[in-house]
Amino acid sequence: MKTKIRAFTLNEMVIVMIISTIVIGIAFTVLSLVQRHMWSIQQNFKLNTEFNRLEQALWIDTNNYSAIKYNKMEREIQFKTVLDSTTYHFKSDYVLRDRDTFHVQIEQKRFFFDGIKVSEGMVDAIQLNLSAKFKDQSIFVFKHNDAIQFIK
């Protein structure tokens, strides 16, 4: 007497393997796309964080120091009070503020005093245009002048 054992046929097993391979391939493709997207989000976040750090530091220094001078030869902005000073050095790939480094590329710098564009000397407003890497964003910081600025 022969007894039949219930089992899958070879054709059914091959079809299951083919379907499993297709599903796993699609899953890895989707995973790769998600990883690239997450990497892109991380890079944008990093760039925006650097941009915001520079803008915040400039706002704080602009409003904390009474005198701001730009030196064109040295490519630096110096913020001064009677007791303290801070200097920003503009390099090609970064901006150096004392011991702090901002990894941003400045395409164009404009400086103003009392609403008039100046190339160096006393400054009360700063406009920095960033590179295309930062989506051509710009920073504009200013301060209100006190009477000491106009006495000289």
Rank of each mutant, 00 (worst) to 15 (best):
A57I: 12
E120G: 05
L96E: 11
K143P: 05
E50I: 14
K117A: 13
K72G: 01
K143I: 05
V118D: 07
I139Q: 06
L128V: 04
E12R: 03
Q108M: 13
S40D: 09
M38F: 07
I24P: 04
F51L: 15
K109Y: 05
T81L: 06
T86Y: 00
R75M: 14
T86A: 09
D146M: 10
E50F: 14
T86C: 01
D100V: 04
I15N: 08
F8V: 00
M73S: 15
L83Y: 10
K152H: 10
F112G: 06
F102W: 05
L54K: 14
K135F: 06
I22V: 08
T81S: 15
G25N: 06
L10C: 00
I22E: 02
L33C: 03
N145G: 10
A7N: 00
Y65N: 10
F113E: 03
K133E: 12
V23I: 14
I19A: 11
I68G: 07
S138T: 02
K69T: 13
H103I: 03
D98E: 08
N64E: 08
N64M: 12
Y65T: 07
R110H: 08
I126F: 05
L58Y: 07
F28P: 00
R53C: 11
Q42K: 15
F8H: 00
Y94V: 07
E50T: 11
N64A: 11
S40Y: 08
I68Y: 07
S131I: 04
I26Q: 03
A27I: 06
K117P: 09
L10D: 01
S131H: 06
T49P: 10
D136M: 01
N129E: 07
L83E: 12
R110K: 13
I41W: 07
M38I: 09
N11M: 01
Q56F: 05
R75I: 08
I151H: 06
T87F: 03
N63L: 09
E50S: 14
E76W: 03
M122Y: 08
S32C: 00
I126Q: 02
K91D: 02
T49R: 14
K117I: 12
R99V: 03
F51S: 12
E74A: 15
H103D: 02
V16A: 15
R6N: 02
D98T: 06
N44V: 13
D146V: 08
Y70I: 03
K2V: 12
Q105R: 10
D124W: 03
I60G: 01
K109N: 07
I151T: 09
Q108S: 13
R6S: 01
M1S: 11
K109M: 11
K72V: 07
Q35E: 03
S92G: 01
T29V: 02
Q35T: 10
T62C: 12
L96R: 09
S66R: 15
M38T: 11
I24A: 14
L31C: 01
Q56S: 13
T29K: 01
I60E: 09
T101Q: 01
Q137T: 00
A57M: 14
D61V: 11
D100C: 00
R6T: 00
V104D: 11
V16M: 15
F51P: 13
I18M: 09
L33Q: 07
I5W: 05
S85H: 10
A27W: 05
H89R: 06
D114G: 10
S40F: 05
L47P: 13
N48M: 15
I77V: 14
S138F: 08
D61L: 13
T86F: 00
R75A: 15
K109F: 02
R97I: 01
